[in-house]
């Protein structure tokens, strides 16, 4: 029973992280209906930027954190400006292939700089964040993951519902020409969505790095695990991303704990195929499946 509860807690915390990573992905999808295959690399870039600032530049943690956020935000902006903007109006298939190319490019560049080694951050998080309820022990990293997940869920929810930029984003995602003709600045919307997505990815990258250590392969494979999460939660639903993340996280830890550790990494994809079969728009997605 203790084992089960421990797995449950781990699953939920990892799930929050998956959900947090998936949020940036959903952000881009909501604004431009682009599936971003380079999301894992955005996670890794955030994590490595933070690593460089903390260990090489030896900045204090808070300064490094804020600089990383700024850096990833600018990075998202630059990526959009250099690679995505020239393709506005081109067929979607080309943009998605471009993100596949970007993923390979970023991953190769990160591997060239840092190699495939495992790096770890120094201990950053204060001990008082840890939760201890008898048998259940939640390390501070997981607590901060859950905390960040909830904060960003609220922030994004409010952003899309009430802020004008959020509403512009939804309108662009819904119908780009119509939004354009109503005076929405489509290019700014794209740029902003990539910048925010990169920023959120950076934060999740740092937290993932705190848990497992930072490794390019590991982080980029988590970027692909976003797909089962968002398909389960619904491609265009922010809260769906969190709940999908929790379900996938639980599925993973339970499989790893009870069935076989090697199946752990594949079970999300098996779930993905099963979801496509029965409920392709996910749990909370807009039911807009066209069978053409």
């Amino acid at each position: 029973m203790d084992f089960f509860i421990q797995l449950l807690v781990n699953g939920i915390s990892i799930g929050f992280l998956y959900g947090l990573s998936a949020m940036g992905f959903v952000m881009i999808y909501k604004a431009s209906s682009v599936l971003n295959f380079a999301h894992g690399e955005l996670l890794a870039i955030g994590a490595f930027l933070f690593l460089a600032l903390v260990t090489w530049a030896e900045l204090p943690v808070a300064a490094a954190f804020i600089l990383t956020l700024a850096g990833t935000f600018v990075f998202g902006f630059i990526v959009e400006r250099l690679f995505l903007r020239p393709l506005i109006g081109e067929p979607l298939i080309e943009i998605i292939m471009l993100t596949v190319g970007l993923a390979a490019m970023f991953k190769g560049a990160l591997l060239l700089i840092w190699g495939g080694n495992l790096y770890t951050y120094p201990d950053l998080l204060p001990e008082f964040l840890a939760w201890n309820w008898g048998v259940v022990q939640v390390p501070p990293v997981y607590v901060s993951a859950i905390f960040m997940g909830i904060v960003f869920l609220l922030l994004f929810g409010l952003f899309f519902k009430y802020s004008s930029q959020g509403i512009y984003m939804r309108s662009v995602a819904d119908n780009q020409p119509a939004a354009l003709s109503l005076g929405v600045h489509v290019r700014r919307v794209f740029a902003l969505s990539w910048a925010i997505a990169a920023l959120v990815a950076g934060i999740s990258g740092i937290i993932l790095g705190l848990i497992n250590g930072i490794n390019v392969h590991e982080l980029s494979s988590i970027g692909l695990k976003v797909f089962p999460v968002v398909i389960l939660g619904g491609l265009d639903s922010i809260s769906g991303a969190i709940i999908g993340g929790i379900i996938i996280g639980l599925l993973e830890t339970m499989t790893g704990g009870y069935l076989s550790p090697s199946l752990r990494d594949v079970i999300p994809y098996i779930a993905l195929v099963a979801i496509l079969l029965v409920r392709p728009y996910g749990l909370f997605g807009l039911v807009e499946i066209e069978r053409v």
Partner: peptide, 25 residues
């Protein structure tokens, strides 16, 4: 310096995909 061909390959393929999509689709 640990220089292996795999990351360089990955980078070059990615770059080639990106450049061709942008300049000669």
């Amino acid at each position: 310096v640990e220089l292996t061909v795999a990351p360089l390959r990955e980078f070059a393929f990615g770059l080639a995909i990106v450049l061709f999509i942008l300049f000669e689709p």
